[in-house]
Every structure is written in C-alpha cells, then in structure tokens.
Design a protein around this nucleic acid. Structure first.
Lengths: 227, 227
DNA sequence: CAGGATATTGAACGATGGTTCGAAACCCTC
DNA sequence: GAGGGTTTCGAACCATCGTTCAATATCCTG
C-alpha cells in the first residue's frame, strides 16, 4: 500500500510573510556574495536576517527553496527588463545598451549581490528546469537584439549566441567585485560596460546610440509579470 | 612552555607524485565546474581521480591546499602569458587580443574547467594574500596594455580598471558554459570574444590588428616561471 | 628474494550542515 | 484577559564533510 506523503507543512502566506521573505532574501544574498554559496549556512543566513535557524524554515521549506526563490526573483526582474528592451522602438544598439545598464543595476543595486541565475547548477535537477527556461528566455532577448542589429546593418555580422555569452559574462561578473560603497554607482559601471560591449558589436562607421536609463523595475511598468 | 608543532607530515615528492597531483587537479577541476566548489567533497574528488579519500591526503595536506594549488597553477600560466604580451613589440590592440585568446585557452583547454583565480574568496585569509597578489599582477598587465593603447591613440579614453574587469568577466565566464565537446574549440571562442572586446576599446576609425596565436604555455617559452 | 620506502586502503572521529519539532512567545480579536 | 492563530525559539537528530591513522598492499632496490 502506498503511503500518502505527509501533509505539506504549512508554509507562511500573506503580505507580512512575503515581506519577511524579502528580508531573508536580502540577507542571504549579502552572505552568498561574500562567503560563497556553499560556504554560507542556514544559521548564518538566519542570524544576518535577525532570526533563528529554525525560524527560517517557517518561511522556506529548505535551503534549495530559498536558493530557487532567490534566483526566481532576479530572473523575473531581468526578464521584465528584457521584454521592455525587445518591445522598444529604438535602434538595436540603443536597446541593447539600455538592457545591459539595467542588468548591472538589477544585479547590484536592486538585488545587491544576488546570484541571479548564476548558480543554477547548485540546485537539484527538478528545480533547475524552470529556472533554465527563464534564463534561456532572457538570453533569447539578447540574441534577438543582436540579430536585429546585424540585420539592420548596425552591428557587424557576429555569432549572436557567442556574443550573448560574452556580454552576459562581463555584466554577470560584476557581482563578484562591485561594491556599493565604492567610488562608482551601479549605473555608472553599467554605462561604461555597455559602452564597451555594444561598441564591440558595431559595424564600421556606425556611431553608438543610447537611450536614457529610467527607474528600475521596483516602481516600474504597469504590465504584470508572468505568473 | 611552548610545544613544538608536530613534525610536518611527510608530503609526497618526486616526479611521480607531481604527475599524480596533476591528475587529481584535473579531476577536481572537472567536478568543481559541474557541482560547484563547496558542493564537491574530497571523497568525490578522490573517486573521480580513481582513488580513495584517505589517499588524497598523501598528496595534499588539506582541501585548502588542493584548492590553492589549483589556483596557483592556473595563475602561473596566465601570468606567463601576460608577461609575453606586455613584452611584445606589437600594437596594444594586437597584444591585448592575443592575451585574451590565450586566457580562454588556458582556462578551457589547458586546465579544463579550472576555477583559476575565480574562487579565491573560498580560501582562508592566510592563503589568499599570495594568490591575490598574483591576480593583481595579472590584472595589472591588462591595465598596462589598455593604458598603452589609449596613450597611442589606438583605444578611446576609458577607465582602464573598469575595462579590465569587463574583459576579464567575459573571458572568465567561459568556464561556466564552455564545452570541449561542443561545436567550437577554445581558440575559436577566444578569437570571437577577443574581437568583440578589443573592438569595444578601439578609437573611432582605427582598424583592429591581431597577432597569430601560437602554442600554449605547456610547451612554451624557454624563460623559467617565477619560483 | 628480502626489506625498506612508497602508495593505498578503510574505518573511524569530531565538527558542521541542513532539518525537525515541541514548546514558548507574541499578537490580535472577542 | 481568555483563546486561537501566527511567529519564534532552542534543543536535538542525522547525514555528510574534512581529516586522521594504523594497517596493508605495492614497488623498487640491493
């Protein structure tokens, strides 16, 4: 006879719990960044969030849950950005530039030190799939923008997949060294990076165009995020 | 009365042991790559290298020893490359391009999946310092090449420190996704990346110059590496 | 073939990690 | 202030991790 799985432990819900989850996520991100992912324990995360290890499990069923949540949030924000960039009417180089600046800001300013989609490998197979799909969607936006630029003659002909990985590598790497208390703000770093990276794609003779970067997705567009 | 530290346990020496250490390093690198650093245990590394956990300690005094060795080897190769690039007579863009290609190859072809200088934070303070010094030296080479290019009017004026981080981010990121059995070889990826990144630095109107990339440092220059 | 140095094993130890759980504390509402 | 839901604690559990070590196998040398 098959035994029913134990009743799913009651997971906290409601706006208060969501708020708390946000605090935990922030604390975890901070620690993940300085001590590495495997190097930070639940007790440390709890302490950083001003609570007890046992209490953490009232909000997250497991460390994997916490990690997956961490990445879902970042990926959702990144994808929201990407959708806006793809839908925008400006030239491909301007849109790509704008997206790159936003990317750096989301990773270092909105979710400081967030691992974003950086450590998917650390999750068990079952959790990976949905996150990988979202990451793929995000990369697809870069692919699209680059192809659009090539088609328009704004970019020189490049392998869009490879170029995507180059751009993402550079901007993702910022979480390793960016220091919010340092001499530069996230958006300044983002602009310098985007300048360099998008210029690397331009066809000879084309001048880089840019867009004004606006507010981050925290108080952003009215359209809802995907479910 | 101060007790003498226990006699330093005999650590294997000789060419045979060095060979074995090389195998272990390769196995460890492979696992670190797929499972992450904190996620791989000594037992797994040992198994991957075809031996027992206890046996590992005949070659490395601790996991930190192993990790530090891993990074020293990669950094030594990278710095050897960097010294050649800095000493070379060609134009700055060509030298930087050559160095970037070499970097990708060292990380993905010579030491597949090596974490290189990527996870220094995981080491205890004492170990970090010498590695950080070597990394700093390596970054300094990029800084030099970029400044030289700017001075020569080959590159547009950029923040050399920031540009260095952008370039290194892109090429370091390759260890996350590069697959030796994939459609591209490490040197092809390296060239595409170097093209994009160095072009991003060029001053308007300047055409990219490149150097032929030669053999990797395995059978490389006669000058000795530093001790 | 003997015998010592070199390699390797497998079991064990202590510490730490994620996790569970019953009980206490807190916070509302009636 | 009694009572029920929500939240928090703290101790304990068990697996795993890095590590040690005495014993054994393997290899080379005389």
């Amino acid at each position: 006879m098959v035994r029913n799985p134990p009743p799913p432990r009651p997971e906290a819900s409601g706006p208060a719990a969501d708020e708390r989850r946000g605090q935990i996520l922030a604390a975890a991100s901070r620690l993940f960044r300085s001590r590495g992912l495997g190097g930070t324990g639940m007790r440390e995360i709890a302490a950083e969030a001003g609570m007890t290890a046992g209490n953490l499990y009232y909000y997250f069923g497991s460390k994997d849950d916490l990690l997956a949540f961490c990445q879902e949030v970042s990926l959702a924000d990144l994808n929201a950005l990407a959708r806006r960039a793809v839908a925008h009417a400006a030239r491909a180089d301007a849109r790509l530039h704008w997206l790159l600046v936003g990317h750096v800001r989301v990773l270092n300013e909105l979710h400081p030190g967030s691992l974003a989609h950086l450590e998917i490998e650390a999750l068990p197979e079952a959790r990976r799939q949905p996150l990988l799909a979202r990451r793929k969607a995000y990369e697809h936006a870069f692919h699209q923008l680059i192809d659009a630029g090539v088609a328009a003659g704004v970019f020189r002909p490049v392998d869009a997949s490879l170029a995507t990985l180059a751009l993402l590598g550079a901007v993702n790497w910022t979480v390793r060294w960016f220091d919010a208390s340092g001499r530069m703000h996230a958006d300044e770093v983002g602009r310098e990076f985007a300048d360099l990276l998008v210029r690397g794609l331009l066809a000879p003779g084309v001048e880089l165009e840019t867009l004004a970067d606006d507010a981050l997705s925290a108080d952003a567009p009215p359209e809802a995020l995907e479910p």
